[in-house]
Design a binder for these strands. Structure first.
Length: 625
DNA sequence: CTAGGGTTAG
């Protein structure tokens, strides 16, 4: 291979008349750079380069092809005496493709300085650059320029403008453009929908959605993604169903959104349905859809499904590996998580900061202090990733759980940033397990200062006081909480049956089958008492709200209700999967262990922190959560 | 003669 390191330069203008030849037809998007340069050289020899059309096509290749090279395109731009808009547009487009919106805007400025009249193509690229850079001020100037050029009614430009105003929060400007459009198409409607979605205006979003003369798959995707974003996952799934009722085809984007709603709901049956849909329709599991599927199974506590989806995903990105590793970690499969990290390294996928937080998390849940310390060092030494506060949090959790409090405190003292609520929470959790009351009080107090609105902070600190029989401390925390108007949300658990998600709150009596459920609860209670169970009333005393205490007698904790409902509604041996909004209390935890044995059922509870897989009398978290 | 818009992940 001959080594041409520079783009050939244009020769001084020749007198020979340019002969249109066939060089250009050899130039395809797939052409290699080396061949392109040969064609370039031939074009210079034959003076074909002086033909603006030919020069443009070559510049386009250099800008757009994956085998291209933008600096050569720029050489062409600079060698043409009077570059016309197409050539500028090509360069701007190429820089956008290369993720360099700054350079794109510089070119636009340069074009302006040289008084080259931009056309409507120029503005679509430039507006995209403004949106990507979130530069609404610059965007406004561009808007003025567009009006001056008389191009503001062009539908492509208008749509881009609406999009720009949407992401910069100027809903009124966007709506004005929408209302004054003379030519408006489905993209205009969808851009306006996106505007309301981005700015959290649910009512306007729905109104516009209903007014649409025609909806396409993007319209539906926008509204589903909105529901996911505002964490109304049931709402998202309802729109997902409506979309199908309307006979719309589901795109990859639809499926990704739906999967993320399913994951948050823990609605495994619906997730499996989506997986089947993907298979049946031969939809390719690309790295995004694959990651979403892996994540869904993991969040539903279904490790096997997660691994299967991971294996089915041919092209795995860092995110796919991260979804797998964090899923294994959350489900208590610490060793498997570490094993996947090694596989990832062998597959030559470079781990990122998220990979390390997942693998460190696996180490802390598995009590693997040595491995955790090794990974923590490896992160900077081998991969040059600077640990952020999340990684320090994992390490403090790791040391704390292992009872190595001096190590944990040393880390807090030496880390380069101020400890945040997560750090103190980790330390406090460890103090609770190891009954380190003195340090626990310190951590709890720091925690309340840093997260005064989080009910969990108060509960954790009062737990520590109660452990020390320090009832005046408990009352003091309770009083502060009450004065600040902080309420502990009621415990709430859900279970999915035949695609329907059933929700139970503490002491729930609203379910249509409440009699059967409470009868089942009594039976469960008798069974576990036969196995020598004693209620752990300690936790009842710790309940903050006084009136709560009476009705939330331990038997009626939401997870027990959900499990009772699961028992009476499914056939024997069916795995029971429950999602809970708060952490599982220790009474429920020991009851679930006994139930899993006496009823010979696997019970999987996802609490606000992690998963508990109960089987044959023990839990995957090794009573460590 | 050539080109352009909106939705997706841990």
């Amino acid at each position: 291979m001959s080594s041409v390191t520079q783009a050939p330069c244009a020769l001084p203008a020749k007198t020979t008349k340019f002969k249109p030849n066939t060089n250009l037809s050899l130039l395809q998007i797939s052409t290699h750079l080396q061949e392109a340069k040969q064609i370039h050289a031939l074009m210079i020899k034959s003076s074909q380069i002086n033909d603006t059309y030919s020069a443009s096509r070559l510049a386009e290749f250099y800008s757009i092809s994956d085998n291209g090279n933008l600096s050569y395109a720029e050489k062409i731009l600079n060698s043409v005496q009077e570059p016309y808009p197409f050539l500028w547009n090509t360069l701007i487009r190429g820089n956008m493709k290369n993720q360099n919106p700054n350079k794109a805007l510089l070119l636009y400025n340069e074009m302006f300085r040289r008084s080259v009249e931009p056309d409507h193509f120029t503005f679509t690229f430039v507006l995209k650059a403004c949106t990507q850079l979130s530069a609404p001020e610059f965007g406004k100037q561009v808007h003025c320029h567009i009006v001056k050029c008389g191009l503001d009614s062009k539908v492509y430009i208008r749509n881009k403008l609406i999009h720009l105003y949407a992401v910069s929060g100027s809903v009124k400007c966007a709506r004005k453009l929408f209302d004054t459009s003379t030519e408006l198409n489905i993209v205009t409607w969808n851009s306006m929908l996106e505007c309301y979605a981005d700015n959290g205006d649910k009512e306007s979003l729905h109104q516009l959605f209903d007014e649409m003369p025609v909806k396409d798959v993007v319209s539906w995707n926008t509204i589903i993604a909105f529901y996911v974003q505002v964490e109304d996952f049931k709402g998202a799934m309802e729109m997902f169903r409506k979309m199908q009722d309307n006979g719309e085809d589901l795109s990859k984007v639809t499926l990704v959104s739906a999967l993320s709603a399913v994951a948050c709901l823990g609605a495994l049956a619906q997730g499996r349905w989506i997986h089947l849909y993907i298979d049946k329709h031969g939809i390719e599991l690309d790295e995004i859809l694959g990651s979403a599927l892996v994540n869904m199974y993991a969040k539903c506590g279904c490790v096997e499904g997660s691994i299967q989806a991971f294996n089915e995903t041919r092209k795995k990105s860092v995110d796919t590996w991260n979804a797998m590793i964090s899923g294994l970690a959350a489900n208590g499969k610490s060793l498997k998580a570490i094993e996947h990290f090694s596989k990832m390294e062998s597959a030559r996928i470079r781990p990122n900061a998220i990979t390390f937080s997942s693998v460190l998390n696996a180490c802390s849940h598995g009590g693997l202090v040595e491995d955790g310390s090794t990974f923590f060092r490896k992160m900077t030494d081998v991969y040059g990733i600077k640990p952020d506060i999340v990684h320090y949090g994992c390490m403090i959790d790791l040391f704390g759980r292992a009872g190595m409090f001096d190590k944990a405190e040393e880390m807090i003292g030496t880390m380069p940033m101020k400890p945040d609520a997560v750090i103190w929470k980790a330390l406090l959790g460890a103090c609770r397990i190891h009954r380190n009351l003195e340090l626990g009080e310190k951590a709890g107090t720091e925690l309340i200062n840093l997260a005064p609105d989080d009910h969990a902070s108060y509960v954790l600190l009062s737990n520590i006081y109660a452990m020390a029989n320090n009832w005046s401390g408990v009352h003091r925390v309770r009083k502060t909480m009450w004065e600040r108007g902080i309420k502990k949300p009621p415990g709430c658990s859900s279970i999915e049956l035949d695609g329907v998600v059933h929700e139970f709150v503490v002491g729930d009596t609203t379910h249509s089958q409440k009699e059967d459920i409470y009868k089942m609860l009594d039976e469960m209670r008798e069974k576990v008492e036969l196995s020598g169970y004693k209620p752990k009333t300690e936790q009842v005393l710790l309940d903050i709200e006084e009136e709560d205490v009476k009705q939330s007698s331990l038997d009626h904790h939401s997870e027990k209700l959900a499990v009772a409902f699961g028992f009476i509604s499914t056939s024997p041996k069916t795995i029971i999967r429950v999602v809970k909004n708060l952490r599982v209390c220790s009474d429920c935890h020991s009851v679930m262990k006994l139930l899993s044995k006496s009823y010979e059922r696997d019970i999987i509870i996802r609490d606000s922190n992690r998963f508990h897989h109960f089987r044959d009398g023990s839990c995957s978290c090794k009573d460590y959560w």
